[in-house]
Design a protein around this nucleic acid. Structure first.
Ligand SMILES: [Mn+2]
Ligand SMILES: [Mn+2]
Ligand SMILES: [Mn+2]
Ligand SMILES: [Mn+2]
Lengths: 239, 239
DNA sequence: AAATATTTTTAGACAAAACTAAAAGATTGT
DNA sequence: ACAATCTTTTAGTTTTGTCTAAAAATATTT
């Protein structure tokens, strides 16, 4: 596998995150995601096209090629392993890991990452609950859904919080909600889309508590059903 | 402390390594050290001068300012802590750590490095026996000397091997010599400058063995006297 | 189907970091 | 002292990645 510049890698990763299943990504969308200008995106798309990392027809948008996805998964693997390391070994908090991992992910050494993976005990989820691709680019899909979509009285486990600001961290800490917390939605109020949930922190043998969650907060909490088994999602062709 | 580009950092570090106590470094010398061209060095020296990291008079050479030395020691700290991490935690061999550390050293996060230092147990020497500056830029001098300069029958400890090729590693492994090995020079032969040494591997309770060392090999082995106490060498003004 | 608005691409410029070739400064040998 | 040599700097390009402004293509309204 060839090496790519930090800039190229950031574009590849951003395209991967924007393109869901087979959607095509737009110039403006990517420019916005990367806080850059559309003209810069067009330049880079031409370059990545000649490197066969994506399919691109002028004015028609673009999406990653099979090779491009493989590269993206490699970058995501590095990013999430470093986040796990920072959180688990260096006691970084949840909201501090991303910024540093953004730098560490660009250090290119296959051996470094595979040894780090081993050292960490082959973790499968990063501190935000996102799955970590394995050394072959295989990634588990935790079939995440937002709690706004969760049916009433169905038990689920918090696996992701999309907004990673310290403000949300503070709020969740206060309500005793964490990655791994089991919860159920007990009631939904149509007036302001707030909801009442019962939650029991992982490991603690304690009576589940009732909390009210605002619409803004609910939109940022993602859960995975306790029943859904994990399935392989990306890199299927490479198993 | 400001942030510097990877390129600037590599220049600063190279100047630090070239300038001994108060020597002035030359354009050609630095160009050679960095495998670049003299013209590129001149350009960068102008830039680093405006940033007050070095003293530079055209045609007269340059040396790091107090601030420049502080920056250099920060880079060296990061480099050597990562080397220790790779060797100690990820089981990298001696000769593999440098190349990866060369990339990791440019990740700029004070917290990352201080937490890493703590996680590693505040190690004082990297896998090559070079001292690691502490968080204030203080560094221990191990007063290293080459075994070619060691007097006969004086016990010393291997603390550094300047050539880090896998060839020398293989040779030393075969002769059972490592960082930490106690040795004495028993005889020197003027004909080919080879020498006979007795060495006992660290930790192992075993009869010291006699080995013949060629001049080329001897030149690359550095030791520290078992009696010399460590002293603070750099960053004296900042304690 | 035009007219209008939006999105995307092109053209031209710039900064960082490198290079080559030529000019200028410093050093050395006679 | 001065010519020859070596070192260093300057001038002018190159590559990568960014930007602004203008032009072209596509999408939306009327
Ligand atoms: Mn992240
Ligand atoms: Mn990044
Ligand atoms: Mn090194
Ligand atoms: Mn470096």
């Amino acid at each position: 596998m060839l090496n790519y510049s930090t800039s190229e890698e950031n574009y590849i990763k951003a395209i991967f995150h924007l393109q869901g299943e087979a959607t095509t990504v737009t110039t403006n969308g990517l420019a916005h995601e990367l806080s850059t200008k559309p003209a810069s995106v067009t330049d880079m798309m031409k370059k990545l096209k000649t490197k066969k990392l994506l399919h691109y027809r002028p004015y028609r948008g673009f999406h990653l090629s099979q090779e491009g996805k493989k590269v993206a998964l490699g970058i995501i693997r590095r990013h999430r392993l470093w986040e796990y390391f920072l959180s688990e070994k260096l006691q970084f908090t949840w909201d501090e890991v991303h910024e540093v991992a953004e730098q560490l992910e660009h250090v290119s050494s296959k051996k470094l990452i595979d040894k780090l993976d081993e050292f960490l005990g082959f973790p499968r989820f990063d501190p935000h609950g996102d799955p970590i691709p394995d050394r072959h680019g295989r990634i588990l899909s935790s079939r995440q859904i937002c709690i706004t979509e969760l049916s009433l009285n169905k038990t689920a486990i918090v696996c992701n919080v999309s907004d990673q600001s310290s403000e949300i961290l503070e709020l969740l800490k206060h309500k005793n909600i964490n990655i791994g917390t089991k919860l159920e939605v007990k009631k939904k109020f149509d007036f302001d889309n707030s909801m009442e949930i019962s939650a029991a922190s992982r490991g603690k043998i304690r009576q589940p508590q009732l909390f009210t969650i605002s619409e803004q907060l609910a939109k940022n909490i993602f859960v995975t059903s306790t029943l859904t088994p994990l399935r392989v999602e990306e890199g299927k062709k490479n198993i």
